[in-house]
Simulated scan of single mutants.
Amino acid sequence: MTQLPATGRCRCGAVTLTVTALPVMTAACHCTGCRKMSASAFSLSMMLPAEGLEVSGVAPVRGGAGEEPCTHMCCSVCHGWLFTRITGMDGLVNVRPTLFDAPDWAMPFIETMCEEKLPWANTPAAHRFDRFPEPEDFGSLMEAYRDRQT
């Protein structure tokens, strides 16, 4: 288990992220937008309580585009994708786990937007969703993730 607080940095080191709360879930998203933002087959996220993330260094700027319900924040120097806030999920923030030296934070527990998944892009996620989990399912998924971590 990763010791808290844990720090991660963008590629250039201009932004430091400090995590003071354990993730409540990890995910891989296969949507076209995430694939383009991450320049990969999917994006990885670790969901944290919003108050469990501290940002220091240069101020992040909004990145990404489109009319999605997400606010993607990036380093203003290297433009690396740092974290995302989702409208309606104000108590959580999705952080890019690969910014930290915590391999368990990068392994996805759920996969989302599998209907847009590239056929060869597979992960070890325990749960898969064609779109996103229903809001009423998040509590049981977070509980199952927590149980798996202990």
Rank of each mutant, 00 (worst) to 15 (best):
I110R: 01
L92D: 03
C114I: 00
P69G: 13
P108R: 02
V95R: 05
D130I: 00
V55C: 05
G57A: 13
M25R: 10
P97I: 06
A14E: 11
H30T: 08
F138V: 11
F129C: 06
P103I: 05
R62S: 12
V15W: 09
L82I: 10
W105H: 08
E136Q: 14
D104G: 05
E67R: 14
M89T: 05
H72M: 07
C75F: 07
E134K: 14
V15P: 03
P135D: 02
R128C: 11
E54M: 14
G64E: 06
L99I: 07
G139K: 14
F100A: 09
P108L: 04
L118Y: 08
L44D: 02
H127E: 05
A50S: 15
M46S: 15
P124E: 05
S76L: 03
G80R: 00
V93K: 10
M107T: 15
E136P: 01
A21G: 00
I86G: 02
C34N: 00
E134Y: 05
A102D: 08
P133L: 00
T87N: 10
M113D: 03
A41K: 01
C74L: 08
E51C: 00
T87D: 13
A102S: 02
L82P: 06
M89P: 02
P60M: 03
P124F: 04
M46E: 00
A41F: 09
H30P: 12
L82N: 11
V58A: 13
I86V: 15
C70Y: 08
F138C: 11
F83M: 04
A106F: 04
P69Y: 03
M25N: 08
E115H: 13
A126Q: 13
R85Y: 02
F100M: 11
F132T: 10
T84G: 01
A65R: 11
V15E: 10
E111Q: 09
V58C: 00
V15I: 10
L17C: 07
M113T: 00
T26R: 09
V61Y: 03
A125R: 12
N94Q: 09
E111F: 00
C34M: 01
S40Q: 04
M73V: 06
P124K: 09
P49N: 14
G88Q: 11
G33F: 03
C31E: 00
E54V: 14
A21C: 09
M25A: 12
T98K: 09
E67N: 15
P124Q: 04
G80L: 05
L17P: 03
T123L: 06
L118W: 02
A27I: 01
E136D: 15
T84D: 04
V58Q: 13
A121F: 03
C114T: 10
R131I: 06
V61K: 14
C29T: 03
L22N: 15
A106K: 01
S140E: 15
T32I: 03
R62P: 07
T87S: 10
T87E: 14
P119G: 09
A39M: 02
V55S: 07
H72K: 13
P124D: 10
T20V: 07
H127S: 02
A28Q: 01
F129P: 03
F109I: 04
R62W: 06
G91A: 15
A126T: 13
G52I: 12
P69R: 08
M37G: 01
T87K: 11
A144F: 08
P49H: 13
M25F: 00
T18S: 12
R128I: 02
E111T: 08
G52W: 11
S56I: 02
A27V: 01
